[in-house]
Design a binder for these strands. Structure first.
Lengths: 104, 104
DNA sequence: TTATGTTGTTCGGTATAGCGAACTTTTTGT
DNA sequence: ACAAAAAGTTCGCTATACCGAACAACATAA
């Protein structure tokens, strides 16, 4: 469902005008592995590698993994207010959302 | 310097009152592996596994990797999950925060 | 044309992620 | 106390992440 990891990396790499070799060099990987990430069926890269790749491509791991949600002004405002709360209240809300999020 | 991955997972797991078995179950891992993550020298978990673990512990991958403060990571993750909720639940939370926010 | 370079692709090997199951330690109950 | 259950630990095995190096495809140039 979430456009896959490989496609996103490839898209971002080209957008930045990087070759496989260059991205490999920048991230401490081999170009063959970068190629595999982009083109081979579902890989499971280490968080370590992926973190460096995301960093050099200027995005978050979370985005690459594919769980980023669309930003909404009302939500953003809610979040700003939420951040002002004390620990206990935050924790209570955290648990509510965690439960709701799980059973769906 | 960045308190390591294992220590953070262990700390958060206990803070949430979870056993190795429970966290393993929640994240589709084995308890032996969760234990290794927590106690063995620097492992290189897959982004896939780590993503699920971070999610169930209520933080971001970025925090676990060690580039973000815990509270920020917890808040950021809360927000991501919040955004996935339906209108009614969001509205309910919005009101709670509004009330709490006012009386202080 | 033939070279020379630049990018992308394939492949065999090695190190290790991640598991199941047995084992040990700690907790709980009676 | 002792037994039973729960939590944590160790270990051997299989699958695969990741690499280096060769190979292919394509361009640019002389």
């Amino acid at each position: 469902m979430a456009g896959d990891l490989g496609a996103r990396i490839k898209e971002l790499r080209k957008k930045r005008g990087l070759t496989l070799d260059q991205l490999a060099e920048l991230t401490g990987s081999s170009k063959s592995y970068i190629w595999e990430l982009e083109n081979k069926a579902p890989p499971r890269p280490s968080a370590d590698k992926l973190s460096k790749i995301a960093d050099k491509l200027g995005v978050t791991i979370t985005y690459l993994i594919g769980e980023q949600a669309e930003e909404d002004a009302t939500d953003a405002n809610f979040y700003r207010n939420f951040q002002k709360l004390d620990k206990e209240k935050k924790e209570m809300l955290r648990r509510m959302v965690q439960v709701w999020d799980d059973d769906e």
